[in-house]
Design a protein around this nucleic acid. Structure first.
Lengths: 202, 202
DNA sequence: GTCTATAAAGGGATAGAC
DNA sequence: GTCTATCCCTTTATAGAC
């Protein structure tokens, strides 16, 4: 897929990524992955030993390219308003290119909760200290209403990620065609930061 | 589970609900469901013909007890502020009793998008007209800033549902133990309506 | 490293007795 | 209606040639 034709192992990993995201880990078939990679089924076992191990490898890579980016911005020294705009822009950009990623992560985490716990101990743990200080400063100066950083992050990430999770549901429930849906998502890029920052005002 | 011991069909449906929510539809085994129901595997086929049909039945029942309730409140004539509080209280109450339900629905919708489209044509479609009128009135009177009803609903539902979807992830990422997590969720009941309504202010 | 062929187990579905 | 026994296709995994 991403075209690293020289390296068979990477080619298989890319193919597995596509298939696991499409069919879910339990629903995916090793044959399907082999076809997607353009190699024989036996090669998957040669490189990754078992389906379980292959799924683990895909999950680790996928989670690793998603979480650290967000964490980095949140813990950065940017002023809060810029930080919010940066997270929204960065995430929606990334998720537009990988719309099925959140549903995949959620599904994996529900069925294999140990995996994420293990991974999170490897990543540097998210520090909300900087963010909390910014919120507290703002509250003291009367610019923001008091709120815990955990709640703020949860609200912001929810508004960004949920529409991708709900994807097909949103279209069906609100009765939107593909064009309406795309317009809705585009509008959110500007809307979410304003909505969120306005909610923080006293 | 819910204890309708007389009716075998209902007993199987309840068991299937539990197992499908736990393992996902693709990951669930008919034997697992039979064990959970305390009956033989053959009986599942006697009542529901196939795994596919059983999954469909569970999905319809589950979706049917979730969506109409929310839709009803949203389309009701309640004043907007009460409406928001009612949705948050009602949903968080319901979801606290069925924390795995959102992840199950999301997973199903991703792998069988036709199902939800079919179901939504059966439910009376959500009317956002009443809500949009309330938002427009408020904007004209200077009480709210202008916003499309679709975006408002998406933001509200996102803040309510996302933490249940992310469930184990939130705990791992924010490094919370079970008690912290429960406290966080409890705090959200009061926080979400205030946060949301404040975001609407000019 | 990559393939073909095949073993071994899993799991949905049915037949038939009770 | 409910059970036991069994069929048979699917799917993971390995053996062994090239």
């Amino acid at each position: 897929m991403t075209g690293r034709d020289g390296d068979t192992e990477a080619k298989i990993l890319d193919a597995a990524h596509v298939v696991f995201m499409r069919s879910g880990t339990a629903g995916a078939r090793m044959q399907e992955i082999a076809d997607e990679a353009g190699v024989n089924k036996a090669l998957l076992h040669y490189y990754f030993r078992s389906k379980e191990k292959l799924a683990e490898a895909v999950f680790r890579r996928t989670a690793g390219e998603f979480f650290p980016r967000v964490f980095g911005v949140l813990a950065s020294g940017l002023p809060l308003e810029e930080k919010v705009r940066a997270v929204v822009a960065g995430d929606m950009d990334f998720l537009s290119r990988h719309p099925y990623l959140p549903a995949y992560i959620i599904s994996e985490v529900h069925h294999q909760p140990e995996r994420i716990v293990g991974l999170m101990t490897e990543f540097r743990r998210v520090s909300l200290d900087v963010l909390q200080a910014q919120l507290d400063d703002g509250a003291r100066e009367g610019r923001y209403r008091p709120i815990r950083a955990e709640q703020a992050v949860l609200n912001l990430v929810a508004m960004i990620v949920f529409p991708f999770l709900a994807g097909p549901l949103v279209g069906a429930v609100l009765n939107l065609d593909a064009a309406d849906h795309q317009a809705l998502m585009a509008e959110r890029r500007a809307l979410i930061p304003e909505f969120f920052l306005n909610a923080l005002r006293p």
